[in-house]
Amino acid sequence: MSADHSFVAEAMKQAVPWVKTMGVEFTEVSGDRVVAELPDREDLRNHVGGPHAAMVFGVGETASGAVVMAAFAPHLDKATPLVARSDIAYKKLALGPLRAEAVLGRPAAEVVAELESGVRPEFPVTVTITDAQGVTTGEMAVVWTLRPNR
């Protein structure tokens, strides 16, 4: 039986106001994979007509945060997820709406075991950003940590 992750989209909109403001939608959510979409809006574009680099980064980081929330929701009373570092490669000019697919890079159970052993775990989330035609326009690696709550 798979876990219910239907809460993630609304929780992200409540916890991260940027998500609601930018119109990010979550089209697929599971415990190890999330797809987020950013609409094509004129006020989000750059000087060449595509989404501004900050928007591209934002939708990718948001997708990574959503997969972290989905994977670790049962443990958020013990720890707070935080981005430790991130890297983005802009591969091709993005035009139109964007799709960011984030995939958890380590099994959640392994990360939780580290947390419970007293180690502050780090774990990667890989993100592939594509345009409406499915062309990869960006790739991200976001490394997250779970900071134990005091």
Rank of each mutant, 00 (worst) to 15 (best):
L76H: 05
E37S: 04
T21M: 11
D131C: 11
M140I: 02
W18N: 08
V29P: 12
A53D: 09
A36H: 03
T62I: 01
S6C: 11
S117M: 05
S117R: 14
T27R: 10
T136P: 09
M12L: 08
M69Q: 14
V34D: 10
P17Q: 09
K78W: 03
V8W: 10
R106D: 07
I88Y: 01
A9W: 13
P17G: 10
M140T: 08
D43P: 04
E110T: 07
V142F: 07
T21W: 04
A108R: 14
V143L: 13
D4M: 07
V112S: 00
G138I: 10
L115G: 00
Q133I: 03
P39D: 05
V67N: 05
L146G: 06
A108C: 06
N46D: 13
L76T: 04
Y90F: 15
G96F: 02
F123R: 02
E37P: 02
V111H: 01
P107L: 08
V103A: 01
S6H: 05
V19T: 08
T145V: 12
A100M: 07
A63W: 06
E10G: 08
D40R: 09
V103D: 01
P121H: 00
T130L: 01
R147C: 03
A36S: 09
R147Q: 14
T145P: 07
V125P: 00
A100S: 06
S64L: 04
R99F: 04
A53I: 07
L146F: 02
M22W: 13
V8C: 12
A71Q: 03
A54G: 15
R150M: 06
A79E: 04
T126I: 03
E122C: 07
K20Q: 15
E10C: 01
V48G: 07
S30Y: 11
M140N: 08
V29S: 13
V48W: 14
G23W: 10
E25S: 15
A84I: 01
N149W: 00
M55T: 11
S64E: 06
A94Q: 06
A70L: 05
L38G: 07
E101C: 01
E37K: 13
V83L: 05
T80L: 13
V119I: 12
V125E: 01
V68C: 13
T62N: 08
K13A: 15
V135Y: 09
A15Q: 14
A11L: 13
K78Y: 03
M22E: 12
A63E: 04
L93A: 15
F57M: 15
P148C: 02
G23P: 12
S6P: 09
M22G: 01
A9C: 12
H52I: 00
L82P: 04
A3E: 15
E139K: 12
A100Q: 07
V112F: 01
R150P: 15
F7G: 03
G96H: 04
G49C: 08
A89W: 09
V125L: 03
G58I: 02
M1Q: 13
A113V: 00
H47R: 14
L146Q: 02
P39G: 07
E10W: 02
V135M: 11
A108D: 04
H47S: 14
V59P: 00
T137H: 05
V8A: 09
I88H: 00
V119Q: 04
G134M: 10
K13V: 03
V112H: 00
A89K: 15
